[in-house]
């Protein structure tokens, strides 16, 4: 379809000259939206895998001047209680240094943390698919160990799922808007080409060209321009994503999901190229056939 011989001098169309650029920008937007969705979903997946089948127990500091040893005794009691519960595979206290590290982004690394009464944390892993009555365990734990609070992650997971669905909906909306805008511009270019080459099309028609033959010529032209534009847009998007990944990497955040583990998702970024081709061909065909019937 790329190198099909054309009976129409379409390459001289001024409107056609803009098509690859406009499609390129549209595809760039679509690819960035897809990349954003892939990135966000990757992040959410990672958080979800960290949170699923796990709960956290906080041992709140006692306000009456409890010593570190007393708090450690409560932690040990809570760990013992938890490990006795069937279905709990592990219950391990989180090191004080790890708690300090987790709080550092909010409280800084100064002496403030040392002066604050921090809760002790116990990371608890549950046997996958085991049935738990978490409210009951929570109640019994609070009775057995004063100040022990079991934090269920389910509300968090539900929030994450909502967030993921929201991101997917936004991405879909962006893709639909980009597709509609592309369709409109292709309709405009097709109509413009038909008007500009009216005489040539009339000659083709008079020597026996079917409407589908004439449409085929314009389809090949639109396909070529749209896929070229889409390839440019995708290339630009990939360059932007790698630049962003590099910047995020240099910022040493741990927010960035590993690109390697998500590689199949990044293949989605190539999708706009065939999609642009299909949209261009279908839109042009429909526009040309409709217009030719109207002018008959």
């Amino acid at each position: 379809m790329f190198f099909r011989r054309s009976d129409l001098p379409l390459d001289r169309d001024p409107a056609g000259g803009f098509l690859p650029w406009i499609v390129g920008f549209m595809v760039y937007l679509a690819a960035m939206a897809l990349a954003g969705a892939v990135f966000a979903n990757g992040l959410i997946d990672r958080w979800r895998s960290d949170l699923t089948d796990a709960v956290t127990v906080q041992i709140l500091p006692n306000a009456e001047g409890e010593t570190t040893q007393d708090q450690a005794a409560r932690v040990a009691a809570a760990v013992k209680f938890l490990t006795d519960v069937p279905g709990i595979t592990s219950a391990a206290p989180v090191a004080h240094e790890e708690i300090v590290r987790l709080l550092e982004p909010w409280l800084g690394s100064g002496n403030i943390i040392d002066d604050l009464p921090l809760p002790a944390l116990i990371a608890v892993h549950l046997q996958p698919d085991a049935a738990f009555n978490l409210p009951e365990i929570k109640r019994r734990l609070a009775e057995a160990v004063p100040g022990a609070v079991l934090e269920d992650h389910k509300p968090w997971l539900a929030d994450l799922a909502r967030l993921a669905r929201g991101i997917e909906a936004l991405t879909l909306l962006t893709l639909v808007l980009v597709a509609v805008a592309s369709i409109l511009i292709i309709v405009f270019v097709s109509r413009s080409a038909l008007a500009q080459h009216q005489e040539v099309i009339q000659v083709l028609s008079l020597i026996g060209a079917r409407d589908a033959y004439i449409a085929g010529q314009l389809q090949a032209y639109a396909f070529r321009l749209a896929t070229l534009g889409a390839a440019l847009g995708v290339a630009l998007a990939i360059a932007t994503i790698f630049a962003a990944a590099k910047l995020l990497g240099e910022a040493e955040t741990n927010l960035m999901p590993e690109l390697g583990s998500l590689s199949w998702r990044w293949l989605l970024l190539i999708l706009p190229i065939p999609a642009a081709g299909v949209i261009a061909v279908a839109t042009t065909r429909l526009t040309v056939l409709t217009q030719l019937r109207r002018t008959a």
Binding site: S205, L206, I207, G208, A209, R210, D211, L292, A296
Partner: peptide, 8 residues
């Protein structure tokens, strides 16, 4: 239009 094309 299809039949006209064939006749032409």
């Amino acid at each position: 239009r299809e039949e006209i094309a064939m006749l032409r």
